[in-house]
Amino acid sequence: MTSQPLAAALGKPIEDAGEETFLLFSQDIPSNNLGFVDSKADSLEVEIAGHEYILRQSPGLLHSNRGEGTTGAVIWKITPLLAAWLTSLPRILSGVLHNRAVVVELGCGVAGLTGLVLSRLVQCYVLTDQAYVMKYLKENIAANATTPREKKTFKKRTNEKKFTPGERLKALALDWEVDSVQNLKSAIPPGAPIDLLIICDCVYNEYLISPLVQTCVDICRLGSTAADATVVLVAQQLRSDTVCELFLDALMKEFNVWRIPDNELSSQLRSGSGYVVHLAILRDQVRKAE
């Protein structure tokens, strides 16, 4: 299922950002606090799909006075949940998440967990965030990418290739407000479209909504075609209804947006979990495909 039949399978896109936000926040939302896994730990051990990852964080950086933001310094609760769901290769993403796929993630944070997990299953995965994240991120890649500990009970996937991180998992500094997405061309295979763009828990600051959405637009136009349009996946914790509505409204000006139905998600990401996962495809690319 490429992006064209994916849009058909999802049905009618969301029409009103305010109504979608009301529906999301009218649920009984459990308290996830701010959403950190453990903001005081220097490192965390996470197991996904039989692989164990030891991930370094920076609690000191999180609580520093760095003006440009520090939220990428620690791991957020939704990240391992999303990574676990994606590594199951969900049916709804079968046309865009496969062994030849090129995946880019925005705002990956110091852990790069989703990239560590999914890069075992795709052709190329590019982790991006601001420059201050890169030191810790590359250390986590080096510590986990080559030989993550594998439990004996875990059966290796038939499509899981021998892991060569230098070729398949890359880290690139990308600031939504100042950097050009053209820089991604140095990290992805020549001429390859970007199949999937992942944004996990990056929607929290109303002042960053405009540059984030514009970055999404620019990446989706980076070599994609109507037949192979880039699919944007946005996973977020439900915190502020105001910020959520502002983001959805801005996103829907450029994209057709759908909420992934519960029957396609893991139980940890369904309605009532405090999280939501949307898919988006550029409006003009959907029209061309039709």
Results as ranks from 00 to 15, higher is better:
M1T: 12
T2E: 13
T2G: 13
Q4T: 15
P5F: 10
L6Y: 06
L6H: 10
E19F: 10
E20S: 10
G35M: 05
I48N: 05
G50M: 07
H51L: 15
E52M: 14
P59T: 07
P59R: 05
L62P: 04
E68R: 12
T70A: 07
I75Q: 14
I75N: 11
W76E: 06
T79R: 09
A83V: 00
T87L: 04
S88K: 11
I92T: 08
G112L: 02
G115A: 05
S119V: 03
Y125F: 08
L127Q: 08
K135P: 07
K135H: 13
K135I: 06
E139W: 02
A142N: 08
T146Y: 13
E150I: 15
K151E: 12
K156A: 10
T164E: 15
R168E: 05
L172F: 13
D179A: 06
S180Y: 08
Q182H: 11
N183Y: 11
I194E: 01
I194W: 00
I198S: 07
C200D: 13
Y204L: 00
E206I: 14
I209M: 02
I219M: 01
G223I: 05
G223S: 06
G223F: 05
S224W: 04
A226Y: 01
D228K: 15
A235I: 09
Q236I: 05
T242I: 13
N256F: 15
R259V: 07
E264W: 05
S267K: 14
L282V: 05
D284H: 07
Q285S: 11
Q285H: 12
V286T: 03
E290H: 13
